[in-house]
Computed example of a mutant assay.
Amino acid sequence: MSSLSELDAAVVTCRACPRLVAWREEAARVKRRAFLDWEYWARPVPGFGLADAPLAIVGLAPAAHGGNRTGRIFTGDPSGDALYAALYDLGLSSQPTATHRGDGLELYGVRITVPVHCAPPDNRPTTSERDTCRPWLARELELLRPTLRAILAFGGFAWQALLPVLTTAGWQLPNPRPAFGHGAEARLTSPGEGRPLHLVGGYHPSRRNMSTHTLTPTMLRDVLRRGADAAELPPRLHRSRPGS
C-alpha cells in the first residue's frame, strides 16, 4: 500500500477480529430507533483527512451507532459533535457538524485516525484486538511521516497504542517513557532527521467526559490548539473564531 487511499481501501475489508466483526454487524442489524432508516456502514472505519497532514489526531475506535453507522470516524455521535465543533472554532474544519460521509466536511492540515478500526462492545477493545489492528496504524503514520509534525492522542488507550508504533518506526521516546495526561507533551527524535515529532495528550471528547466536565469545550479547544501549534500549522488555519 503506497498511498493513504490504498490503505483506506484495504482497511475496510479487514475481518481479522471475530468478536469485532460480529459486534459491528450485530449493531447494524439491530440499530437504534433513531436510525432505523439508515443502512449502516458496518465495516472497519478508515482514517479521514489529508494525506499530507502535519497534525494527526488519534482516538480510540468507532462508535457502534456513530462511525459504524456513518462510515466516517467521529461522525454521527456525541464525541464527534464536540470534536468537529472545536476543530471548526479553530479553523481546522470546514463546518462544525459531521453527520455522514457525504456531508461535505473537509479538514485543514489534519488527519484523524484510530488504533482500532472496528466498533468494540462497550467501547472497549481488548489488547489483542488493539495489537491485531496495529499494523494499520503503523502504515498510516509511515505514509504521513514526510509531513507529520505532531500527534494528538485522545485518551490513555490511544497514547499507549501509539508508543510502540512510534518506537518501531524509529522515533526515540524520552526516558522515562512519557505518561499520559491531559496536556501531556513529549518530544520524539529520529536519527538522521532534524525535525522532531511532538506527541500531545488530551482527554477523549466522550459523552461521559463532556457531561461530567472532565473535559470542557474550552479544554478541548486548548489542547487542539497546542497540537496545531506543535504541528506548525499556519496561524490562519487555527485562529479562534469570534466568541469561541
Rank of each mutant, 00 (worst) to 15 (best):
G181P: 04
P174Q: 00
H100W: 13
C14D: 15
G183W: 01
G66D: 01
W171V: 01
R43K: 13
G202A: 11
P54E: 00
H204K: 01
G243V: 01
P121T: 06
R139S: 09
T70D: 01
W23A: 12
R124M: 12
A150M: 03
S2L: 14
P46T: 01
P125Q: 08
Q95E: 09
C118N: 14
N68I: 07
P62H: 05
W38L: 10
V30R: 12
H213E: 15
G109Q: 02
S240W: 13
G156K: 10
G202P: 02
G67M: 02
A28M: 04
A28N: 02
L90D: 04
G102Q: 11
Y108K: 12
R187C: 11
A186G: 08
V200W: 05
R15E: 12
V114I: 10
R226C: 08
L148K: 07
V165S: 04
L7C: 09
G59F: 03
C17I: 07
E25S: 11
R221P: 09
G47T: 07
R124S: 14
E26C: 12
P242K: 04
P164D: 00
E232H: 14
T70V: 06
N175D: 14
D8L: 07
A64F: 03
E142W: 14
G156T: 06
R72C: 07
A61L: 04
M1H: 12
V11K: 11
A184M: 07
A42N: 05
T218K: 14
V58W: 05
R207H: 14
P164H: 00
R101W: 08
R139W: 09
P146I: 00
L141S: 02
L220I: 07
G109R: 01
A28Q: 03
G181L: 08
P115Q: 01
G76E: 01
V45Y: 06
T147K: 13
Y40M: 04
G227V: 01
A42L: 05
L199Q: 00
S190E: 13
I112W: 09
R207P: 11
R221F: 08
D89W: 10
L55A: 03
C14V: 13
R195M: 15
D37G: 07
L162C: 00
R236M: 14
L4P: 07
H204E: 04
G67C: 02
A150Y: 00
A63V: 10
R187K: 10
G181M: 08
L152Q: 04
G109Y: 05
A158G: 05
T132I: 11
A10V: 10
L7P: 09
N123Q: 13
T147M: 12
A179I: 11
L4T: 09
L148M: 06
E26T: 14
T168M: 10
D122Q: 15
A85Y: 12
G104L: 01
W41F: 10
P191R: 01
A158S: 08
M1W: 13
V12R: 08
D8K: 13
L60C: 11
T218L: 15
H213W: 12
G80Q: 07
E142R: 15
H117L: 12
C133N: 12
P120E: 08
A169E: 04
Y84P: 10
R72K: 09
P78C: 02
A86Y: 07
N175S: 14
R221E: 12
T168A: 15
T13L: 13
Q160N: 15
A10H: 13
A158I: 04
P178R: 03
D103H: 03
T189C: 06
T189I: 05
V21R: 07
E129H: 07
R221Q: 12
L137W: 04
S211T: 11
L163D: 05
